[in-house]
């Protein structure tokens, strides 16, 4: 069982990521506007949107059931749970009993299950197709994410996220090439899971009118918009917290945590900057051709396994 300090750190980092999420998505909007040479809405626009939506009436479609109503709550709770268990400011995970590679993968399954099911439950055609795509993307990305994390765990000799981040910090896995390949495979998986443009299959705005989000309104939509941002931040944190843990605190004291927080924000800005440039410079993939690039991702992960096996 986690001690008081660990629990406080876990709650603190989850709260921080939750509060940062609209800022991160606002940052993306500003970046997008800059690339389009527009003035754009400003960094805080997503906070204003969420506040506005929270005050609007909720409209629930006729056939929709309890799953549709409950999904935003389940989604946010699950994402916050993941946020609590990731190593963000420290090398170790604050909640070792949850911060595990396989637990993380199964928690992503929980997110996907309800996000996808709510699309069918709303009764909307577009939401249903979005749900199907969301689940398909899950099936395509699972081998990449699983193999990459599996090799990372083999390098660290442990499936605990904290141990993996410690091992990546000290490069003690004994196979630099494998570590680099893992890093690329995870970066690819994280990018796809963020649902940014070439891979925004489920919510494809122009094709599917926001997919599973179509029928949401008012507070439900506010929570969901927040969750979409939170999911992106959590995914980015997997990459920078576990696989690029530079600046993270080895032991928790006020000073080290402060430096770690600064380093974390700097890394987060870099990730969103890169992601923003990519998403604004490409067009959406054709859905049925997506599998080609995800297999390429799986190829990188396989390469990591091979490098690990030969000890390069």
């Amino acid at each position: 069982m986690p001690g008081f300090g660990q629990l406080a750190l876990a709650i603190g980092q989850a709260a921080a990521l939750l509060l940062l999420a609209p800022l991160a998505s606002g940052f993306c909007r500003v970046l997008r506007a800059k690339i389009h040479t527009r003035t754009g809405p400003g960094f805080l626009q997503d906070y204003r949107d969420i506040l506005k939506l929270l005050k609007r009436q909720e409209v629930v479609p006729k056939g929709a059931g309890i799953i549709f109503r409950a999904m935003p709550f389940i989604l946010m709770a699950t994402l916050l749970l993941i946020a609590m268990a990731l190593p963000v400011l420290t090398l170790a995970s604050p909640l070792d009993a949850i911060g595990n590679v396989f637990t993380f993968i199964c928690l992503l399954g929980l997110v996907r299950f309800f996000f996808s099911l709510s699309g069918i439950d709303s009764g909307n055609t577009f939401a249903g197709i979005g749900a199907s795509r969301e689940a398909t993307m899950g099936a395509l990305m699972e081998p990449v994410i699983l193999l990459a994390l599996f090799v990372a765990a083999l390098l660290a000799g442990s499936t605990s996220l904290g141990q993996i981040s410690t091992s990546f910090r000290s490069l003690s896995g004994g196979s630099i090439a494998a570590e680099i390949a893992v890093l690329f495979a995870v970066a690819f998986a994280v990018f796809v899971e963020m649902g940014k443009v070439p891979y925004d299959m489920a919510e494809a705005e122009q094709e599917l009118q926001d997919g599973p989000l179509t029928e949401y309104s008012g507070p439900g939509l506010a929570l969901l918009k927040w969750c979409v941002g939170l999911r992106q931040v959590v995914m980015a944190t997997i990459l920078i917290g576990v696989f690029l843990p530079y600046g993270a605190a080895a032991s928790a004291s006020f000073e080290t945590l402060l430096w770690a927080a600064l380093a974390f924000v700097a890394k987060l800005v870099c990730v969103f900057l890169i992601v923003g440039v990519i998403e604004n410079s490409v067009a959406r993939n054709r859905f049925f051709l997506t599998s080609r690039s995800t297999w390429a991702g799986f190829g990188i992960a396989t390469l990591a396994l091979v490098f690990y096996l030969v000890g390069l």
Partner: peptide, 12 residues
């Protein structure tokens, strides 16, 4: 905010 409106038609 106003009370939720339940039973709307889906958007088609």
């Amino acid at each position: 905010r106003p009370k939720p409106r339940i039973g709307a038609e889906v958007w088609a």
